[in-house]
Amino acid sequence: MVYSTKTIRNVMLATGVALALSLGVTQPAAAEFPEKPVEMTVLFGGTAQTISQLLADLMSRNLPQPVVAVSRTGGGGAVGYAHVQSTAADGYNIVWNSNSVSTAHHKGNMPFNYEAFTPIARISIEVPALSVRADSGWSNLADMVEAVKASDKKLKVGISGNGSFTHLTSAALFDNLGIADKVTYVPYGKGKAPIELLAKRVDAAVQWPGQFISHQKSGELNILCVTSEQRIALLPNTPSCDEAGASGLDITMWRGLAAPKGTPAAIVEKLQNAAKAAAESGEFQEASKNIGFTIAYLPAGEFGKLIVSDDAKISSLMSELGLKK
């Protein structure tokens, strides 16, 4: 039923445009976009929400109408994606997306995939990190791998949830290190993995660097490596996993903006430019240092290519793990 209204709307829109063209009217809709507030659907709470609220605030300064961050959480992002996907492709409904567009689809929680959206711009990336307790005596990745291989016990690794991004990252990492069969993943909701590590209930945790840094400074945790190919600005002295022994590993989570498929290019470009200005502003850079993410603006075209290649990567990783539906 939803589709039929959408189809009707599209037909009406098409008729309207055809009529406008036949009458020789220039496209006023696109030229004046936005005429009303733009709604940015946010799929998750926590850091994702904080960044989105700041981004929306900064984008509003570069547009005649405000951008409003609206939270639609649930289903690992599926609820929010489904909402935006069902709205008109006019640029007034955009989504603060991430690799979750691939994980939610391949898990079978979402009947459509990234192709239902038009990319606008990538804004930032976040890189998971592997951490262990300082009293484990493991000061680098090789120490840990050696100890795990020598031990007859399994390594308990705290992650966010089965099938979550940190799970996929850990699986790829331990597979690369050749110890995949000696690892037990312990899923914790809501970012509790770091304290479970501190409390000695798990041996390692794969989470976001911001959750570990303060404990590393206080000397209780060691961050062994970050999963991107390059080191990250937040942790200049921490090697990448690639350097530390997991050669070829390169996993990062991106966040960006997308609109329903079929949104006119002129509107996408306006949103892309507003996003670019926001991402490059001093305030956003300040926030990136404080919150612990990396600003990584990419225009719509390149962002689109990245989504396609990452989707293939995630899909094959999930099939290996038996998580793909």
Binding site: T47, Q49, T50, G210, S214, H215, N290, I291, G292
Partner: peptide
């Protein structure tokens, strides 16, 4: 969690 976001954005990283 929202207060944590507020603390972070103002440069106060909670932790030891």
């Amino acid at each position: 969690a929202i207060i944590l976001g507020g603390l972070l954005i103002h440069g106060l990283a909670p932790g030891p």
